[in-house]
């Protein structure tokens, strides 16, 4: 009888998952308006984050080291999730450009699908990108001493997870491991669904 009550208590209050790479926000943060463009030239707004989970990375296509490494990592994670029968909808993978001056939708269209066919590249007006990044605590800036043509861009290395309500839900700092992030994602998703 007592055991029954204890078990009932444990069931009715789901435990926050222990994560190996991710950090859950104490409460998911809704996003204010922004208006960007995806790599097919369609508008990309907070509405595009509704209805499914989304992983986002912020980088630029002239970055040959950190950005391809992170995109490959997300692609590897996606291939692991594709094998997970418990998952009926895969998360969106988003690559937000922090270099809209060079990263046109056309350039992104030739860049992001290479890593995984499901990656969506997003770019747009500098002010609109800032509207999004400032809400997320994502930092970026042209590197000091960069020439006018071949400049480098410093940018946050974190991976962001949005929940199906389009809210900022969790963050993943470096280093990133595809298996650990896939496992964390399943745990976060399970916990989120239990709380619904």
């Amino acid at each position: 009888m007592l055991l029954g009550i204890v078990l009932l208590g444990a069931c009715s209050r789901p435990q926050a998952p222990e994560l190996s790479q991710g950090t859950l926000l104490p409460s998911a943060k809704p996003l204010l308006e922004f208006e960007l463009i995806d790599h097919q030239g369609r508008p990309f707004t907070p509405g595009n984050l509704q209805g499914r989970w989304s992983f986002a990375f912020f980088g630029y296509t002239h970055c040959p080291d950190v950005c391809p490494t992170s995109l490959s990592m997300l692609a590897q994670m996606q291939r692991k999730l594709e094998k997970d029968a418990a998952l009926n909808t895969l998360p969106q993978l988003l690559f937000f450009s922090v270099d809209p001056q060079r990263d046109t939708p056309q350039l992104l269209a030739e860049f992001v699908p290479y890593f995984h066919s499901s990656v969506i590249g997003v770019t747009g007006d500098q002010q609109q990108i800032l509207k999004l990044t400032r809400q997320l605590g994502i930092l970026y800036a042209k590197a000091e001493g960069s020439g006018s043509e071949d400049y480098l861009v410093d940018h946050s290395a974190a991976i962001i997870l949005f929940d199906p309500d389009g809210k900022l839900h969790a963050l993943f700092g470096v280093p990133h491991d595809p298996t650990l992030i896939a496992n964390d994602f399943m745990a976060i998703k399970h916990y989120y669904e239990e709380l619904q």
Binding site: P64, D65, P68, R102, E110, F111, P113, F115
Partner: peptide
């Protein structure tokens, strides 16, 4: 050398 998409401007 890391293979990159054809549109990549920089390689590592």
């Amino acid at each position: 050398v890391r293979e990159a998409p054809p549109s990549a401007r920089m390689l590592a």
